[in-house]
Every structure is written in structure tokens, then in C-alpha cells.
Design a protein around this nucleic acid. Structure first.
Lengths: 365, 365
DNA sequence: CTGTTAGCGCCTTCAT
DNA sequence: ATGAAGGCGCTAACAG
């Protein structure tokens, strides 16, 4: 493997000159430059990234710490990051986090020296005990999708999930629903995700504003996932006084709700309205009403912000808020009139123990 | 930022000694080691990865070149890679490729010096002109999901997609279908993906074995994607003599087929059988019959293989073949008897120009 | 304009 | 068991 020294010899020039043409400095005569270039291509030489990193004191890479990076919402964010990094000089290294232990490892090791020039942390909202690490970090940090009062000291790109939660709930209220369920991740879980909590707040705010009581049995929490949401939805929908509408904290969870409705023989949106959150690509396929957030853009802005911050650190932490938008499709409609005075519904329990494979059937209202 | 030299001074030892305890060499007395360790923790010292890389001549990172890394099948593979790398000392850097130009850039730059100790290339089947780069690479290369005769010289992890294509088609034939369509990516496209082609071969083989004619109008090709598959499916299903079953080259494309069936008022599986490929998580949700391939495992094996190859290069290229499996769910069934002698079906063209949002309804046979 | 020199931080001989 | 010295490949500052 040829080094810069070999090139210098071959071209009959000094070592520094080669370096200069490599970094296209203007301080090289055209003829020398040509000679060096020739030698470079003769030797099939490529500069060593590692050596250059050491010399420059930069790693030329950006690290992303991300939980569960196969979740569609997460990959969209990553795509935004990758896209903007691709047109920069930074490499992208990914640390996927699926356990609390690994999250802590990553926070400790990655943010420290030499692994990256900057870090983007997705959806992981640092605990108070992590803050010291992040507030005066050795390398710049940008948080994406982590909203927390105490995070005001950090650079971040967020969405107003409380407002999103309000928008979703408001939509259902305006349709005339009075029995509105909410299905989400555990509000308290070890990763300290904030989105379910914030959307929950918005949900509560609208209920209150509309004079509707909050009922804890209308709130199904569980691990993130379609299947878990399915189970929670079944619980809500078999309640004596079951909701006529369900707000799911993500499109994935909304899919579980739709599945539950199907298996219980409920028509969507006639018998049950469902609204999701995210506007994944699949939401359109399912004709799912949802709250759109700009996932890909959040990654893009996060990466752009990080690069800015690396280039010149801001005095004050920067916070960028991305908008949300209600997208009305086919899974929400006014409740049936008779739902007003319905008693306890009875469903064939057989379909629960042994849910029929698929018998889906809903129409736009 | 403290260096090894600071630690040495603080501990009152030589620079080499610190290095030794860092790499837990046995050639250090217990007392000295303790003293050094103390200094390290006092100074909150961490060794510089970059310097160590340069000195060791290793990058301690593995690069993955991957097209369209937001596709679910791809992220599953990536997850397998990430998981096995997480428990190793390697970092993972990702090069996402969405254009041919970028693919070529990546092949050129990444495989060359110093960016990584090894490369995993997913689903990108190198052209003959790329082979020289890969056959005597500067760093080890493992291909995942790239099957090609001329690739026998490379390490790789593959699935027998021809067999998978056969299995899918065979299943439909056994159910009694005689009019079987195939919807896939373009068989020839710039990225040189092999999967659609191989599955196509399997499809053809079974048709022939079953004495069924191949009809080119039964093969819909287009760019990868649900929407594109939808449009192709509509074409097939509005043919005068439309197929009673469709084999889609991926679950994503199968979703487009299901959507088309829905919009055309066809019941699945009564009027139309659909089989996909991959067994994505969503396949179960959709009760989609499909060919399962072990996506996550393919990534895992790829990473493991690469690490092996880095540690000691094999004499002969290693090829590992992963199995496929037919998973029968609710979208395939025998054709209706009356389909045998059906003429040209007539569908309301309105539903094509303005497809109804969702009116899905199928049952297991 | 260009050659030379001194690091960047660490690992690894080589003496001791 | 340990300290000193040389080198990994490159950049940047300094003379010329």
C-alpha cells in the first residue's frame, strides 16, 4: 500500500508538496501538481483516512445512537440523516440500542473522545443523571425527538407532541365522539421515550377542554408494538362501555387496533374510529387517519444542525420545532347515533381466543 | 483531553507501561498496574481510537454498503449485522445507496484503504467490471443476497431464490391454479438485483413442469414498490383472461396486489390467490401467504463470516446458503370452479380512475 | 512555490 | 518488569 512518501519519491518532490496537492492548496505550480497527480495515479495511491484523522484531530464521522432502528419511524429519521451526510464528508456510524444497558454503554463510550466529531441521539431522552455528560460534551450533541423540560440546555430537533396529541383528540371530539380511548407505550419505561407521554398530555387536555371525563380504563399502555396494541385494544373494546374511537400513539399501534376491531367484528369507521400518529407510508395504504410528522426531515435537520454546531458552536442551545399535521383518511367518522345510549356490548369470545385470520372491512364515512 | 503521556507522568511510570496495562499485558506488576489504573481514572482518560487505529493498522470498523436501507427487508438484514457487531469490537458504518452513481462511488472508495477492515455488500450484485476490485480486495468482502454465477469467486451468504420461486409457484399449482401471474421488479435494472430474476426462473420452471404455458402478459415488471406493483396488478387483473393467482416477488409488492384486488372488487383468496416473498412482520398481519427467508439471520451470518474472514482469510471463497420456507396463510386457496371457463371479466372502470379508499374483505379458504 | 521538520497518540520492539 | 525510542501516514508550520 503506497504512502504519501512513495508518491513524493516517485514524483521527485517533497513530501509536503504531495500533501498540498492532496488538499488542493493553491501554493503548487501547475507543472509540479501535474507530476504529482501522475505519480498518484501511477501508484494507485489513496491517502490513509486514519492518518489524516489523527493529524487533523478530527474523525470525519458522525455517530448516531438510536433505539430499535428497524422501526419504520426510526428508519425514516435515519434516512434523513444518511441523505444529508452522504453529500458531506462525514461517515455515518450507527449504534443501535435495544437494551438499557447498551444505551448506557453507548452514551458513555460514543460521546467520549475520538469516535466521532458529533453525535445524534434519536428518541432517547437522557435522564437527569446523564445530563452532565451531555451538557458539556467532548463533542457536539444533537437530540432528535427527545422532548423534556430539562433538555432545554441541549441542541435538539423536536415535534410538539402535546399539540399532536391535542390535534388527534380534537379531531375525534369534533366528529362527535365522547368515548375516546388512548393506546400507547408505557408512559413510564426504562428508555424514557417522551412521545407517548406528550401525546397523552394532549389527549388529556382536549378531553378536559371538551368536558369529557378521563377514564383510566380507556388508556391502554404496554410495550411498543402492533401485537401489544392489539391486546390492549381488545381490552378497551370489550369494556362494558367501550370507546367509539381510539387514538393510537403510533401508526404501528393503530394497526393493532384495526386488527382488534376486525377480529371483534367491528366496522371501521362505522363502529369504531381509529387515528394513528406518524403517517408512515403504510398509513396511506390502510387509509388510516393520522397525525403526520416529518420523520425524514427530522433526521435531515438534525444532521444539518449537528454539522452547523460542529463548525461553530452556538452560544445558546438551538431547538428546532417541526410541525405536525392532521391527515384525515378513512378510519375516522362520526359515531353511530345508537352508540349514544348503548349498554354493554357482547362479542363472541371465540373470536378472541382464536382470532379469525383476516376479515377486514371498512369504508370511508 | 489527557493522553497516554499524561497518565504516565501522573502515575510516575514510563509511557510503554501505561500502554501495557491498557492492553492488559501480563508483563506489569500488580502494584504498578494499580497505580496506572488509578491515574487513568483520576484523569478520566480514554485512549484515542484514531491513534490506536493508525498504530495498529486496523480501523476496527466494518462498512456496509446497502441499497435503499429503509426497505423493511433490508433493515432486517442490517439488524442482524448490527447485533453481531455490537458484541464485537467493530464499529459499523453504513453507506446507503440510492443511485447507481453512489453505488459506484461506494464500491470504489469504501473497499479501498483505511475506511474499514471489511465490507459487507447487501443485495448489490457487482457487474463483471467490478469484479477485479472485489476479487483481490484490499480488505475482505462478504456479499449478502447477491447471487450470480460469476460471483462464485466471492464470499457470500445467499438464499436459493430460484428454489423459493419454485416453492411459491408450486404452491399455487398444487392448489389448482392454471393462470398464474408474476409481479416483480424489472428483471433488468441498473442495480443488478438478482432476486426478482431468480424467483422468475423458479416461476418459469414450475410452469413448464406443470405443463402450463408462460404468458408474457402475466408478468408485470416495474420499479420496486407497493404502488408500482399495484399498477401492474391492475393491468394483469383487467386482462381478458386474467390470472387467478399472483406470485409477487416481495411482500411489499404483494401488498400492492392485495390493494389492487380490493379496488377491483376481487375477494382474496376466493377470486384471487396472492403469495408474497420475505415474510416481513407485516405479512402475518395481512395473513399473507409467503416464502419466508431469514433476513435477520442473513445479516448475522454475513457479519460473522466477515469477521472470520478478517481473522484468517480462507483459501477458497465461502458460500453459505440459507433456507427458505413456504408459509401458508390466508391469501391463497384453490381457484373458483367457474373460473375454469370464464370469459373476459368486466370491472367497473370507475374504481380504477378513482380507487375507493379501502374496502377490503377476504377470508381464509 | 517547495523541501524539511515536528508533532498527532498509541503500540512495539529493544535494551536494561 | 519497565523505560526509551522508533514508527504508523499525514498535516501544518517553518524556512528557504
Amino acid at each position: 500500500m503506497p504512502t504519501i512518501r512513495d508518491v513524493a519519491e516517485k514524483a521527485g518532490v517533497g513530501l509536503g508538496t504531495v500533501s498540498r496537492v492532496l488538499n488542493d492548496s493553491p501554493l503548487v505550480s501547475d507543472t509540479t501538481r501535474r507530476r504529482v497527480l501522475q505519480a498518484i495515479s501511477d501508484l494507485n495511491y489513496t491517502p490513509s483516512l486514519t492518518a489524516r484523522r489523527l493529524s487533523l484531530g478530527k474523525t470525519m464521522t458522525i455517530a448516531v445512537i438510536v433505539p430499535f432502528f428497524t422501526r419504520p419511524s426510526v428508519t425514516e429519521r435515519l434516512r434523513g440523516i444518511e441523505n444529508t451526510l452522504a453529500s458531506s464528508d462525514y461517515d455515518l456510524t450507527i449504534y443501535n440500542v435495544e437494551t438499557v444497558k447498551r444505551r448506557d454503554e453507548c452514551l458513555q463510550h460514543v460521546i467520549r473522545h475520538e469516535r466521532a466529531d458529533g453525535v445524534i441521539i434519536i428518541s432517547l431522552s437522557p435522564r437527569d443523571e446523564d445530563l452532565p455528560l451531555l451538557v458539556n460534551p467532548e463533542i457536539p450533541v444533537v437530540l432528535v425527538d427527545a422532548n423534556h423540560a430539562s433538555l432545554a440546555v441541549l441542541n435538539r430537533v423536536v415535534v410538539d407532541d402535546v399539540a399532536g396529541g391535542r390535534a388527534a383528540t380534537q379531531h375525534l371530539v369534533e366528529l362527535g365522539h365522547q368515548h375516546i380511548g388512548y393506546i400507547s407505550d408505557y408512559l413510564e419505561e426504562p428508555f424514557n421515550f417522551t412521545s407517548s407521554r406528550d401525546r397523552y398530555l394532549g389527549y388529556r387536555q382536549i378531553l378536559e377542554a371538551a368536558g369529557l371525563p378521563f377514564r383510566s380504563e380507556y388508556h391502554g399502555q404496554g410495550p411498543h408494538g402492533r401485537q401489544e396494541a392489539y391486546e390492549n385494544a381488545v381490552k378497551l373494546l370489550t369494556l362494558p362501555d367501550s370507546p367509539t374511537a381510539i387514538f393510537a400513539a403510533s401508526d404501528t399501534q393503530a394497526m393493532g387496533v384495526l386488527q382488534a376491531a376486525r377480529d371483534l367484528g367491528l366496522q371501521v369507521p362505522e363502529d369504531l374510529s381509529v387515528i394513528g400518529y406518524d403517517d408512515l407510508e403504510i398509513a396511506e395504504y390502510l387509509s388510516l387517519t393520522t397525525i403526520r410528522q416529518l420523520l425524514c426531515l427530522s433526521g435531515q435537520r438534525g444532521a444539518e444542525l449537528l454539522i452547523e454546531v460542529i463548525q461553530d458552536p452556538p452560544k445558546e442551545p438551538i431547538c428546532e420545532v417541526l410541525p405536525t399535521e392532521l391527515v384525515v383518511r378513512g378510519t375516522t367518522a362520526p359515531p353511530k347515533p345508537e352508540d349514544e345510549n348503548r349498554g354493554s356490548a357482547v362479542y363472541p369470545p371465540a373470536s378472541l381466543d382464536n382470532p379469525s385470520p383476516i376479515s377486514q372491512s371498512w369504508h370511508t364515512g
